[in-house]
Amino acid sequence: MKVIVLIKQVPETTEVRINPETNTLVREGVKGIINPFDTYALEEGVRIKERLGGTVVVVSMGPPQAREALQDAIALGADEAVLLSDRAFAGADTLATSRALAAAVRKLEPYDLIICGKQAIDGDTAQVGPEVAELLDIPHVTYVRRIRELEPGRVVVERMVEGAVETVEMSLPGLITVVKDINQPRIPSLKGIMKARRAAIPVWTPADVGISEELVGLRGSPTVVEKVFVPQVERRGEILEGSPREVAEALLSRLEALGVR
């Protein structure tokens, strides 16, 4: 089984800094970790390898420091890692990111299964998985909590939807996004960490994966962030008064204004 895991390096804390010109996040100087959902994806990929044999290749698109996340992935059991990194990739929205990742996956064909984490904790969109699948013209299933059966050409999974669990059969090659319920990620082993240190992680540019620079990065992004702002919540200590019905209404209005319904 050849499994490809798509990971993203995200900031460790949710404290944010914004580049005022491009309206994109400043990523330097902030400690990076593997996006937590992706650690579940990677763990699942490594377990598949341990059960059925094969290889796990990890791919990430990011600035040069994303290399650390790929090293961590190797320490956790991935066999190979590839970093897509270039000025041209920077500032990408989900579609531009998906195009770059799909181009990289193409270069790694043939493969059986692509696994992604449900979403990245910074962007929170959960779009890249399904978009990559579409661009590669392969099927996908999101929110997988368990792989029931897996064999060449076919996988059966349990998928979480609102209030229910679907059992879905998907032909391979295909892509799944996974939720935290699927496993508990391991801690890396010392031997794994040492192997990761020595690992050669190639860096691919748009030319390396055969994609035009116009299709990736800020240039290739159909969406543009016009502005970012930090939602203001002060501890105002406002005492609401009135009848129970009145205070209930007043409270709900204030919560709604803050985005809670």
Binding site: R186, I187, P188, S189, L190, K191, G192
Partner: peptide, 21 residues
């Protein structure tokens, strides 16, 4: 086993010839 075996921590003070670090 999970904490110290799988992480190779159990082998820290054991020579490489015998499976340690």
């Amino acid at each position: 086993r999970e904490w110290f075996g799988e992480t190779d921590l159990m082998g820290v003070g054991i020579p490489e010839e015998y499976g340690g670090l």
